[in-house]
């Protein structure tokens, strides 16, 4: 590899990084300007103003929104992981008739857009009194998360050496013991990756909560942010501070777990 080529590659990567960061930098920059500033992103001043964040937090009721969204994510993650482990193991460990068809039937769910099911969900959930509660989002997301979870974990389990489970099987261990004592301990990284995906998807989710939760006190961060942005569309710094407030935890989370996330997506690609 020539030095020239390497320099080209590096320059190019730096350009890609700048292109990716630009929109985020633009809102961060506006969010730190005084409320009456006319700047809309390009010019930068060191006269930073954090008051917008304080104002946005209270005016947008973001504390409430964070609690709501966190409640939804923290309910979904353990339940979804638990059911996906069972399901993924079921498809990995057992042979049964029409297994292939049932598995493909699950895969079908990965292509169904939420827009296609939200209207019947609205009526179904209303009839059982779950509309306007966090459960209205939790249940459909749990259902929607199953296909990927099962697909993901089954692929991972299948990549493990066969001998482990076989040996235990011969020793007379029950299938549950094999799952708990042999498979799970060596599958931590796959489960952590799945949990991270579930967190990101549930936290970022929009359309279900927009339609199924009309109660402003039970809104999630994304629907709350949309309402906030519409209400304060004339105060750009405030609006941007609200947007940054919502994405900051995700960015922080991403930086903390970036190894898992990047590796997770890259591995997922070839399975």
């Amino acid at each position: 590899m020539t030095k020239y080529e390497s320099a080209f590659s590096k320059t190019f990567l730096i350009f890609m990084v700048a292109f990716t960061i630009l929109p985020i930098f633009a809102i961060l920059n506006i969010s730190l300007q005084p409320a009456d500033a006319l700047s809309t992103g390009l010019s930068f001043s060191w006269d930073l103003n954090f008051q917008n964040y304080v104002d946005a937090w209270s005016m947008g009721n973001f504390g409430r929104l964070f609690i709501n969204s966190l409640g939804i994510s923290l309910t979904i993650i353990p339940l979804a992981i638990f059911f996906a482990i069972l399901g993924g193991f079921g498809f990995y460990f057992f042979n049964f008739r029409n297994k292939k068809y049932l598995f493909n039937f699950f895969l079908l769910g990965m292509t169904l857009p939420y827009e296609a099911i939200v209207i019947p969900l609205y009526y179904g959930l209303n009839s059982v009194g779950l509309l306007n509660t966090s459960w209205a989002v939790i249940f459909p997301l749990l259902g929607g998360f199953m296909p990927f979870g099962i697909f993901w974990l089954r692929s991972y389990f299948s990549s493990l050496p066969n001998e482990l489970a076989e040996a235990a099987s011969i020793d007379g261990a029950t299938s549950l013991q094999i799952l708990m004592k042999i498979i799970l301990p060596i599958s931590k990284s796959a489960i952590v990756s799945l949990a991270i995906f579930y967190y990101i998807w549930s936290w970022n989710h929009f359309i279900l909560s927009m339609i199924l939760i009309q109660d402003a006190t039970r809104r999630t961060v994304t629907t709350g942010l949309t309402a906030f942005v519409n209400q304060y569309s004339q105060n750009l710094p405030l609006l941007c501070a609200g947007t940054m407030t919502v994405i900051a935890p995700t960015i922080l989370f991403f930086i903390l777990f970036q190894k898992h996330i990047v590796k997770g997506i890259l591995d997922g690609a070839v399975k």
Partner: peptide, 12 residues
């Protein structure tokens, strides 16, 4: 867009 849905729901 949401008010009819809210009026119809049980805790509207």
């Amino acid at each position: 867009q949401g008010i009819q849905l809210a009026l119809k729901s049980k805790n509207g």
